[in-house]
C-alpha cells in the first residue's frame, strides 16, 4: 500500500498545533488554576492525541 504523505501531514500538523496550544496554555497558567498536577496534564496532552488536548481545555482549568 502506498501512503500519500501529502494527505497525512496536514493531520499531523493540526494535531501538533492543538497540542502546542494546550502546552502553552498550561505553562502560562498558575499552578492553582490547574486541576491536579501540571505534569499529569503534560502526559495527557502528549499521549492523548486530540482527546488529550480537548480534555485539558475543557476540564484542566478551573473557572477563573
Amino acid at each position: 500500500m502506498e501512503i500519500n504523505w501529502g494527505l497525512i501531514w496536514p493531520i499531523i500538523a493540526l494535531q501538533a498545533v492543538l497540542a502546542v496550544t494546550a502546552l502553552v496554555s498550561l505553562t502560562k497558567a498558575e499552578t492553582e488554576q490547574i486541576r491536579g498536577p501540571k505534569w499529569m496534564w503534560v502526559l495527557i496532552i502528549l499521549l492523548g492525541n486530540i482527546l488529550g488536548s480537548v480534555a485539558y481545555f475543557i476540564g484542566g482549568r478551573r473557572a477563573s
Binding site: L14, L18, T21, A22, V24, S25, S53, V54, F57, R61
Partner: peptide, 11 residues
C-alpha cells in the same frame, strides 16, 4: 484568552 479560537476550530 482561553485559546477557544484556536482549539475549537482545530478540533
Amino acid at each position: 484568552r482561553s485559546y477557544k479560537w484556536i482549539w475549537v476550530p482545530a478540533v
